[in-house]
Amino acid sequence: MWNKKLHISIKYFIILSLLASILMNSISVGSKEVLFILIFIINNQVRFFSLENDHMKKVSFLLEVILSIIAYKYIGGYLIAYLVLQAMDSNTLFKAPSKHIFNILIIVQGIVFSLNNNLEFKYLNIFIPGIFIAILYLVKDENDKKVEAQELYDRIRISEEKLKNANRDLEIYASSVEELTLLRERNRLSREIHDSVGHALSTIAIQLGAIERLTAKDDKTLNELTKELRVFTQKSLNEVRMAVREIKPKEFEEYEGILAIEELIKNFKKLTGIEVRLGFSKEKWRLNSDQSFVLYRIVQEFLSNSVRHGKATVVNITMNFIDDKLIVTLKDNGIGQTDIVEGVGLKSMRERVTEIGGFFSYDSISGEGFLVKVEINKIENLKIYSQGDEYEQD
């Protein structure tokens, strides 16, 4: 609440003022009085600088109240100094309701010891400590408001950062969905043209070739027309095949592993109703069969765990292709768990990634979901899987 250096400076100033008042007003100060004053000061300093336990601080404060009463009655000094010193610690070291009780105790001391004194003495020992305590309450209230405002600002800043991250993930997801959809459509069109128009033209060219051979001897004019039509059809067929090659995305092979994962996600969403978002970077390099297989199994296991253990409703999967490695991040919004016991599923994921020379890690905090991170090098020694080990879906 207070600036610590200012607090210490005021505390020492009051203690010095108290000692000065004792020396000026006391007839004699012997060894017993000096020892008592040392005990009083040591108790005050130990409470402020050393004691951590709140209960011990309260005991120390009550001890100071008793020592202050004895010192004021039998040694001397200004009562207001004792009370202000108590008020400082009461309002800086303790919280409600202890603080309120101690403040009432301070005011009661001022009233009791001022009953038989003049009005000026009563004013000094009752109203000034009361005003001092009121000022400390105001300072505490202002400080609480500042702390509350700072906490609110921090929460807003954290929420803003989360919102930015969520917006970025959604943009990546939307871009990835659009890109995959476009590639799928281009691939579908190329396949449709090849299977329908290409097949029809190919059949026509074969039939015209047969007609050309049949009319070679009987009708030269018809033969020439048939030949020209066959050449034209063959030329059209070549143009269609060229168009099919142009339409079919060259980078489609780069997406084979991603498309397999996307198909897994699509089926998972249909079965569970859980929202799963798949996003990937603009730059990509082709995943080989082992990499595709491992990533497929990782995603499959993670989705299964998110439902069974995490009770998640949203899963975000991001594939970031950089120059020399692929970083895959899988994050759900499930219940999470601080103390994780690595079971068969996590061990299996770790082993699969390690076998292809990758890096596997995970993290989870209770109430904040589960995070898995996989790093796969672009070039590594790869394990050859058996032909019978194919993609499966839960």
Results as ranks from 00 to 15, higher is better:
K32S: 06
Q291M: 06
L152P: 00
V240C: 08
W285T: 00
E192Q: 12
I172R: 04
I22R: 01
K331F: 07
A210M: 10
Y153E: 15
L330K: 00
A312G: 08
E253D: 09
M88G: 07
S364C: 05
L38E: 06
F268N: 00
G130R: 03
S98E: 09
K378W: 02
L35R: 08
I340M: 13
T329H: 05
I10R: 10
K325G: 02
L105R: 05
L287C: 01
G130Q: 06
F61T: 10
N125F: 02
E192L: 15
I156Y: 10
N316L: 08
P129M: 01
N125M: 04
E256M: 07
P249W: 14
M319N: 06
S114T: 04
L214G: 05
K269P: 01
L264E: 10
N25C: 05
I75Q: 07
R184M: 09
L237P: 02
F252R: 13
I317W: 01
R191T: 10
G310I: 04
E263Y: 12
I376V: 12
D144C: 08
L214I: 14
S176Q: 06
L115C: 05
Y385V: 01
I22P: 03
V244Q: 04
N305D: 12
F359I: 15
F132C: 08
L208R: 06
N116M: 08
I75A: 14
A216E: 11
L182G: 04
I8E: 13
F252Q: 14
S366N: 14
I41G: 07
R286M: 01
K73H: 04
N117Y: 13
A96F: 08
V299P: 00
R157Y: 06
I101F: 12
S196F: 06
F102T: 07
D141Y: 14
N91H: 09
F302H: 05
I133Y: 02
D89S: 15
I133E: 05
V372W: 00
D332W: 02
R277G: 03
G336M: 02
T226A: 15
V231Q: 13
L35I: 06
V344K: 13
F370G: 02
D141G: 11
I193C: 04
S60V: 08
S175P: 00
V372Q: 00
K73A: 09
Y137Q: 15
N43R: 07
Q109W: 04
D89V: 06
V372F: 02
M319P: 00
G110C: 05
